[in-house]
């Protein structure tokens, strides 16, 4: 079967991969790059456990073929921690009891991170829309929202204006 050559940056590291036509980004991350923080919960984009940030946007890595991604940049939960320092969202999830079984947590964090990168001060509705595609069966979402809000309320940086889509 013909392989496709793909240059991919994952958590700041560059990789050149030869992938098959069926290989999903999820498989590449988990199986090749051993980034098992990315979880598979449904395989059809309904649960959000496999959420990663692809070129700045939260996506379900089960619904992307790696062969489509030449030149792309991916961030997974493993990429949130910088030099041993937790991302404020990770710390907030610990502090606010936003974690129970933890299986949805990596995807949830990535959806929240993608939101805050574009809109550092979202309101509760915006937070809910950002994580509506991340199912959680344990927490009832309440403490997850509280955790994200605690980070969203912080910081002085101006909210990015992401209303306008700039085609360039």
């Amino acid at each position: 079967m013909k392989k496709i050559k793909v240059n991919l940056t994952v958590n700041g590291k560059e990789f050149t991969l030869e992938v098959g036509p069926k290989e999903r980004l999820l498989d590449t991350l988990r199986e090749r790059l051993k980034l098992t923080g990315v979880k598979e919960g449904c395989g059809i984009g309904e649960c959000g456990a496999c959420t990663v940030i692809l070129n700045g946007e939260a996506v379900n890595s089960c619904l992307v073929l790696t062969g489509q991604l030449d030149g792309s940049e991916v961030i997974t939960v493993e990429g949130l921690e910088v030099e041993g320092r937790l991302d404020p969202l990770q710390q907030a999830f610990i502090d606010h009891h936003a974690v129970q079984c933890g299986f949805c947590t990596p995807g949830m964090l990535m959806s929240a991170r993608a939101l805050l990168d574009k809109n550092p001060h979202p309101n509760r509705e915006e937070i809910k829309r950002a994580i509506e595609g991340n199912l959680c069966r344990c927490t009832g979402y309440q403490q997850i929202i509280e955790a994200i809000e605690s980070v969203a309320g912080k910081g002085e940086e101006e909210g990015a204006d992401y209303f306008e889509w700039d085609p360039d």
Binding site: E57, A58, N60, G133
Partner: peptide, 9 residues
Amino acid sequence: IGSNQIRNR
């Protein structure tokens, strides 16, 4: 449509 992840893609 779908979720944020689906709308992004």
